[in-house]
Write a protein that binds this DNA or RNA. Structure first.
Lengths: 186, 186
DNA sequence: TCGTTGTTGAAACAGTCGTACCATATACAC
DNA sequence: GTGTATATGGTACGACTGTTTCAACAACGA
């Protein structure tokens, strides 16, 4: 009895809120401008999510979900040379379409430096790459339990993303990745 | 005539404000708590710095100045093996005493992603390393104009700093740096 | 039509923010 | 002393923040 609930509304709002955060960032996020951009009201955002903190958590989870979906099956088994595999990953992650995700990624990391309690699974977001990268670069790893090589590969990628997002010098970043691929392959 | 100006006060306030920002971060910085911690008043902060924006700019300049001083003469010429040089830089920059600088560094980068206009010389902060690192690792560079090797070295360091500040796993980070040193040396 | 449950708007609350205004206190030259 | 410049304290303004409260409206079963 009574009016039926409409869970789709929350989903729709979450999707659009995630778009908004990816476009505008987390730092200055505020309910009233967000609600205006989403054609809703702060009242409804709190009605659907309970509090701003829970809304942000839901948005970050949704952003991670989108990234995971886009990544799925994107890193095939070890086919081609080390250079080709590394270039493939780099081309995908450094593409302009990924820039909003990369920005949010760096923003969450920076905020986590002073408020780690807000991001309990942040460390896992790093170690999660070990299995995938360990499989992709098995031939240059020292063994199946090697976490050092995946760590180094991700460090190079994150460090070059840092450089690229700061200087915008894609040519230099691409060449630095190629140089790393040469070193890794020998 | 009139009361003499006291420029030392501004200097003292700037030094303590920089300590405060290094400890508490840039994100939530607010004049009233800052003034309280510095035994002064928001009134005096604006009197000395004009606006919050200028205060932040002065603090960031001071933080850079401190980092530069601590770095001066810290990277001697190419003595020892590549491993030793790389380890020396890494040990210095990843030391616990440097953590506040590293955090501020990442925080500024993240904020610059959405407000690049506030950090006009951010790209230069990256390219400034080329001369120093090019000299330190001349033997593994392809030439005196090689910017790719310094780019890669800094990317590895920044990427490992990212990992270290997130996971706190120093052992893994150290080993990844050693692995990179091996690759670079061959 | 009535009761019930889900949805929504408008307004207000208590707080913080950066900043401006006004008065006053301090330290010097004369 | 007077004049003058710097240095402060106190206070209030207007704009913002996340959140709450109260009321009304909408869609359903009985």
């Amino acid at each position: 009895m009574g009016r039926p609930a409409d869970p789709a509304r929350r989903e729709r709002t979450l999707a659009r809120a995630t778009d908004y955060v990816l476009a505008h960032g987390l730092a200055g996020l505020s309910l009233r401008p967000l609600a205006t951009a989403l054609d809703t009201s702060p009242r409804m955002l709190l009605y659907d999510f309970g509090s701003k903190q829970e809304l942000v958590a839901a948005v970050l989870a949704e952003a991670r979900r989108r990234g995971a979906v886009r990544l799925a099956g994107r890193l095939p088994a070890a086919t081609g040379s080390v250079q080709e595999r590394l270039r493939g990953i780099w081309a995908w992650i450094s593409a302009d379409e990924r820039a909003p995700f990369v920005r949010l990624f760096f923003e969450v990391h920076a905020d986590g430096l002073h408020h780690p309690e807000n991001y309990p699974d942040q460390g896992q977001a790093i170690t999660d790459w070990f299995d995938t990268l360990g499989a992709t670069f098995r031939d240059v790893c020292t063994g199946p339990e090697d976490t050092v090589t995946p760590t180094l590969v991700m460090a190079v990628i994150r460090g070059l993303l840092f450089d690229l997002t700061t200087t915008g010098d894609r040519h230099r970043a691409d060449r630095a990745l190629d140089r790393f691929a040469e070193l890794l392959d020998r």
